[in-house]
């Protein structure tokens, strides 16, 4: 799955992008996943976090919802054959330049129909060597910040070797405490979510 693209870009901005995909695999894409899309004609990649998956409807689907005992053929036709994409929203949190990963917004957004890939564990590990990107999540107006912080950090922890996970969680906790010094109840909730 890592080498296969999981969707194509529908629209984008410097702060994030939306890609479309057909029926999601059980494990891909998920809320909180690290994904990447090419920028600057392939010179780099923007890295982002999935923060919303929206299943679109249309006038044809609505009457089917009320139909009794819909057989598998109708359901599969709507899911697999009809081109009603599932829209996946991504918050940009960094990019890969020639010198390595940068934690911040990319110089350009990806372009229409660019392919989207899931980040490999080693990419997630390399990107989360630093945790400056957490500020972009905390400051995001669109994403559900606390939920995304908790899930994304759990995903990132899974990318680290078992022996290093606890150290990663402690580092993430310290970074959150630095970002939220005046909101102790919120910080406490987040730290509780970080526990394995």
């Amino acid at each position: 799955m890592l080498n296969e693209h999981i969707g194509r870009l529908l629209r984008s901005a410097t702060t994030g992008f939306v890609f479309g995909c057909q029926v999601p695999e059980p494990d891909v894409p998920r809320f909180g996943d690290f994904v990447r899309a090419p920028v600057q004609r392939g010179r780099g990649d923007v890295l982002g976090l999935v923060y919303d998956l929206v299943v679109q409807d249309d006038a044809f689907v609505r009457p089917l919802v009320a139909a009794p005992d819909l057989t598998d053929e109708y359901v599969l036709d709507q899911r697999l054959n009809r081109q009603v994409p599932i829209e996946v929203s991504v918050l940009a949190v960094g990019y890969r330049a020639e010198a390595g990963f940068v934690q911040g917004l990319p110089p350009q957004p990806p372009l229409t129909l660019d392919v989207i890939h899931l980040c490999a564990p080693e990419e997630v590990r390399a990107f989360t060597e630093r945790l400056d990107f957490l500020r972009l999540i905390v400051d995001s107006a669109e994403a559900p910040a606390d939920e995304l912080l908790a899930v994304a950090l759990s995903r990132a922890a899974e990318a680290w070797p078992a022996a290093e996970r606890e150290a990663f969680r402690r580092r993430a906790g310290r970074e959150l405490a630095r970002l939220l010094p005046r909101d102790l109840p919120r910080l406490e909730r987040l730290l509780r979510r970080l526990r394995p």
Binding site: T71, E73, D77
Partner: peptide, 9 residues
């Protein structure tokens, strides 16, 4: 539409 097959049309 292969009714009863369980396949996507």
């Amino acid at each position: 539409f292969r009714h009863g097959s369980g396949e996507a049309p």
